[in-house]
Structures are given as C-alpha cells and as structure tokens.
C-alpha cells in the first residue's frame, strides 16, 4: 500500500475527521431545511391579496400625507410652525408614488433559485472551509504532538515527501467530501425552489455563473484546508493553527477594524481578510466611504466607492498559501525532530 493511500486511510480513521465532517454536513443540511421551512410557493390568490394590501397601504399614505399637509398649512397660518416639525413649503408633503409600495412586501418569503442560490454558496464555502481548516490542522498537528510524525519518518525518512503526501491525502479527502456536498447543495436548493419558490428564468448563462461560483467556493475550501495544515505543521501542534487563527481574527481583524474605524481610515474594510473572501465568492465587493460626498447632476449625494475584485482576492490567497506552506516545508526540512 502506498504512503498516499495509507495517509488517506489514516485521515478517514480519525474520529475527529469523522465528527467534524458530520458536524459540517449537518449544519449545511440544517441551512437547507431551514430555508425550506421559511419559504413558501406563491400562488395567484396570494399575489392578488398582496396587491390589494399594497393598494390599501398606498391609500393610507395618501390620507396621512393630506392630513399632514393641512396641519402644516394651519400651523403656518397660526404662526406656530417654527419648531421644525414641518417644512417651509407645505406642498412638498406628498404621498410616495404608487409603484414604490410593492406587492412583494406583503408576500411571504419565497425562494427564487435564480436570484438567491448564488448567495447560498457563500455559507456553503464558509462552513466547509472552517471544517477543512480544523481537520487539516488536527490531521498534522496531532501527528506531531503524539509522536506519530517521528514514527513515520523512521519508516519514510524523506521529510518533504512525507509532509506533501499527507497534504495531498488531506486535500483529496476534503475534496471527496466537498464535491458530493456541493452536488447535494445544488440539488437541495433546486428542490427548495421547486417546492417553496421558483426555478423560472434559469438560462445556461445563469447555470454557468453558479458553477463558477461553486468552483471558487471549492477552491476556497482547499486553500483554507492547506493553510490550517501548514500552520499546524509549522507550530508542530494543532493549537498553533487554531490559536493563530483566533489571534488573527481577534487582534488582526476585530482590533484592526476598530482601530481603522476610530482613525476614520477610508475604505477600512479593504484591510480586512473577510472582505477578500467575500470578493472571491461574489466576484466584486464595492466598499463605500460615507464620509465623502460626490454630488450628482440632480444634487444627490453619493459616497465614494472602491471595488475589491476576485482577481485581487486570488493574489492574496495565492501569496498566503505560498508563504505559509513554504514556511512549513522549510521548517520540515531544516528543523530537528525531537
């Protein structure tokens, strides 16, 4: 039996791997079930009722604005309109246009596959990336801390081959869980849309877009699994990876976020890692600076924006993997094992 197959067997035999995988899949299943029970299919009767409710809402708005306009003019005549309650010109008190009051507001939640499925791929990737990170860290961290790595190196004294084979087995195992899970995720939400929403307007372009988002999600899972593995190998303990990620998130992200916010730094989110993970999944994240005002031709004030693209995220992820895995391989090659 080859080292690769042995490592794959070792991975699948570990209780932690089994429990974490099961936990991750249960959370994903819970999300699908939750979405199923919180959505409804909309029939024509519900739609008509919603239209009627929107009409009623509009009529209420018309009545209310008329009352307010009259009250404004009376206050102005009486000379008591100086408390800032009413505008200078009472004629600006008008009801909203009818089309601004939408019938959907009065409908129960429904799952539109075309509009919503893309968003569900973000928690899918996030949950499996977390599972991959922890399993990856534990897989090699426990080997180091229990002496298993030393035992293995007495049998296979090629250190880099051993570490890279372990990583290859880990990624294969994670992929073996992620791909079927992704298929079930697609199928699950297709079923939710069928029974609790709509699968209309699906074109080949939409499917292609979903597939590409799914592939980026799988890549994110593999990248975070590799980083967890490399960090634990670098510190020769599972806690190194877990502690490292807690430190990065608490100090490097929450702390940094508060600091940047206090310093009123423009586009503070551009310094935070989750922004790049989100951009990787959604292709673009547009950050807005609400302290700035770009006046439009009509006098509207729009904030300055900054786009974080998935290409920028890909550079960050690649550099992260190369640096952390490179350091782990260097340490494996150079450091004594005692």
């Amino acid at each position: 039996m080859s080292l690769f197959r042995t490592e794959l067997r070792r991975l699948s035999k570990r209780r932690f791997t089994r429990y974490m995988t099961l936990l991750g899949l249960l959370v994903l299943a819970a999300v699908v079930v939750g979405v199923f029970f919180t959505n409804q299919k909309i029939d024509a009767g519900q739609l008509a009722r919603a239209e009627r409710q929107a009409d009623q809402q509009y009529q209420e708005q018309v009545r209310w604005s008329e009352q307010e306009r009259v009250a404004c003019e009376q206050a102005k005549t009486a000379g008591t309109a100086t408390d800032g309650r009413y505008p200078d010109d009472c004629s600006v008190i008008t009801p909203p246009p009818r089309e601004e009051i939408k019938a959907e507001w009065f409908l129960p939640s429904t799952f539109d596959f075309k509009e919503t499925f893309d968003e569900t791929l973000i928690p899918f990737a996030a949950i499996l990336a977390l599972v991959g990170f922890v399993i990856g860290a534990s897989f090699v961290g426990a080997e180091w801390s229990t002496g298993g790595m030393m035992n293995l190196l007495l049998w296979r004294p090629k250190r880099l081959t051993v570490l890279l084979t372990k990583l290859a087995a880990l990624l294969t195992g994670i992929l073996a869980v992620t791909l079927p899970a992704a298929v079930l995720w697609f199928a699950g939400f297709w079923a939710v849309a069928n029974f609790r929403g709509s699968t209309e307007k699906m074109t080949s372009g939409v499917w292609q877009s979903f597939m590409l988002t799914g592939v980026r999600g799988v890549v994110l899972v593999l990248v975070l699994t590799t980083i967890g593995f490399a960090l634990a190998s670098l510190g020769r303990h599972t806690a190194m990876a877990l502690g490292g990620v807690v430190a990065v998130m608490v100090v490097g992200q929450f702390g940094l976020g508060i600091l940047l916010s206090m310093a009123s730094v423009r586009f503070a989110e551009a310094w935070l890692l989750p922004t790049y993970a989100l951009a990787w999944m959604t292709k673009t994240v547009t950050l807005q600076d609400w302290n700035s005002c770009n006046a439009t031709y009509y006098g509207e004030c729009k904030p300055a924006t900054m786009d974080i693209t998935w290409q920028q995220s890909s550079v960050l992820l690649s550099v992260g993997v190369v640096v952390i895995l490179g350091a782990a391989l260097w340490a494996m090659r150079r450091r004594d094992i005692s």
Partner: peptide
C-alpha cells in the same frame, strides 16, 4: 485513539 492493530497496520502500509 487508534488501536494497536490500526497503528501497526498504518505503519505497515506506509512502509
């Protein structure tokens, strides 16, 4: 958490 047999079996596989 592995049994003795699993431990030896994995080493035998690696070697």
């Amino acid at each position: 958490h592995f049994t003795a047999r699993d431990t030896l079996s994995l080493l035998a596989g690696a070697g």
